[in-house]
Amino acid sequence: MNFLNGITLLLVYQLVGEVAVRLAGLPIPGPVLGMVMLFLTLLIRGRAPAAVDQASSALLSHLSLLFVPAGVGMMVHFGRIAEEWLPITLALLLSTIITMVATALIMQVTSRWFAGPLENGGPGDD
């Protein structure tokens, strides 16, 4: 019963996000807004309820099954993908490079921010 309560809560947040996006005309997917609202709720509470923890763990353990529809969709549209292989390849390569550079820069900035200025110099400063 705990799993059922958790999955119901997750689906309610998804539904609320979907309704909010449609009513407000926001340019983001409803489930994304629902996930942000769930995150804020969990942040305020400080912990996840046991039901949500159990449901999310069960969903994550079967995450690979969610790639099946995407694979089927690729096979259905294989002809179009074959015709448009160059722009698709360039988009994938450029987005990967941009993501890696952005991640590296963000990591450097946050590392410096969390480390703060060293007091009394670094190691080896005598």
Rank of each mutant, 00 (worst) to 15 (best):
H62T: 08
A51Y: 00
T8S: 14
P123Q: 07
A24G: 03
V68H: 05
T8N: 04
I81Q: 03
L15T: 13
L60Q: 08
A70T: 10
M107E: 11
I106L: 10
S61N: 07
S61V: 02
M107L: 12
G46Q: 01
F78A: 14
S61R: 12
T89W: 13
S61C: 03
W113T: 12
G25Y: 08
V21Q: 05
A115R: 14
A55C: 06
V76L: 15
T110F: 13
L94D: 00
V21P: 01
Q14M: 15
L26C: 07
L92C: 11
G116A: 08
P49R: 03
G6M: 02
I106W: 06
A104S: 14
L86A: 11
L9N: 01
S57P: 00
G34C: 04
G79N: 11
I88R: 06
T89G: 08
F114M: 03
G6N: 01
P31R: 09
L26E: 02
T103V: 10
L65Q: 06
G17I: 01
M37V: 11
I44A: 12
L10T: 09
V16C: 10
S95W: 11
V72S: 03
L86E: 05
S57Y: 02
P27M: 08
G17P: 00
L90E: 02
R112T: 09
A24I: 11
L65D: 05
L42F: 12
F67T: 11
N5T: 03
G71V: 09
L118H: 11
S111E: 05
F67M: 13
N120H: 14
H62C: 07
G46E: 00
S95Y: 13
F39V: 14
G124E: 01
G25L: 05
G116C: 08
L94G: 02
M75E: 06
A70Q: 07
F39M: 14
S64C: 02
V72C: 05
T103Q: 12
Q54R: 11
A58L: 15
R47C: 02
L26A: 14
L86S: 05
M100N: 06
P117N: 06
N5K: 10
G71N: 06
G116F: 10
I98M: 09
V101C: 03
A24K: 10
G124D: 02
A20P: 00
R112Q: 14
I44D: 03
V68I: 15
P123A: 11
V36W: 13
A24F: 15
I7P: 00
T8I: 12
G25I: 06
V68M: 12
D125H: 13
I44G: 02
A48M: 13
T96G: 06
Q108D: 10
M100T: 10
L15K: 05
I106H: 04
G25M: 04
L90S: 03
V52E: 00
A24R: 11
L66G: 04
G46W: 01
L118W: 06
T8W: 04
G17N: 00
E83I: 09
P31S: 11
V19E: 02
Q14F: 15
A51T: 01
A20N: 01
M74A: 15
S57R: 13
V109R: 11
R80N: 13
P69I: 06
P87C: 07
F114P: 00
